[in-house]
């Protein structure tokens, strides 16, 4: 079947089979290999992508579901001129990854969290992010990175409000 959707801000359309998962389509057809496959059971979060702003496990989510929806992968986060998203920069600043396999999913889950509520407490970060696993870092760097991005996004938010 043919589906139309928005991929990282651009209109896209693809001929898909109903059995194809979003991860398969994004990795093999769209060459967006930032979508990582690990547990394939919706536990680890490494295949997290955003569909209409909400995180889904692309490993167990049919590509069929993205019809007429917005899909965001890690490749779509930085501004076109190469300016990193505040979360990407914060992950670098706090060494919030080692092998990096969980990182795209972590950043996208965190983006969804902060887009929904930028005034987020440590408890809220921990509760929301507990569905994304990292085997390398022990999570502290990731927590610090999300805190930093939250502070920066809050500042931008205030700035935008005062100038509008």
């Amino acid at each position: 079947m043919k589906i139309g959707f928005e991929l990282n801000g651009k209109a896209a359309s693809l001929e898909i089979e109903p059995r194809e998962t979003l991860a398969e389509v994004l990795r093999a057809r769209c060459r967006l290999t930032g979508v990582k496959l690990s547990c394939e059971a919706q536990v680890c979060g490494s295949c997290t992508v955003l569909v209409d702003g909400l995180p889904v496990s692309a490993c167990t989510y049919l590509a069929y579901e993205i019809r007429d929806k917005r899909v965001t992968t890690i490749e779509g986060l930085a501004d076109p001129p190469g300016r990193l998203h505040p979360l990407q920069q914060a992950f670098l600043d706090h060494f919030a990854f080692q092998c990096g396999f969980c990182t795209p999913g972590m950043i996208l889950a965190a983006k969804s969290l902060l887009d929904e509520n930028v005034h987020v407490s440590d408890e809220e970060i921990i509760a929301y992010m507990s569905g994304n696993l990292c085997r390398c870092t022990g999570y502290l760097g990731i927590l610090k990175a999300i805190r930093q991005a939250s502070a920066e996004m809050k500042a931008t938010w205030k700035e935008n409000r005062s100038t509008s």
């Binding site: 547990c39 970060i125 921990i126 507990s130 994304n132 696993l133 085997r135 022990g138 999570y139 502290l140």
Partner: peptide, 18 residues
């Protein structure tokens, strides 16, 4: 032998003080 049954540390296991 699956991540559904084999539990590894997650965010919520982070110590209060590190």
């Amino acid at each position: 032998g699956t991540l559904l049954e084999y539990r590894v540390p997650r965010f919520s296991d982070l110590a209060r003080r590190v």
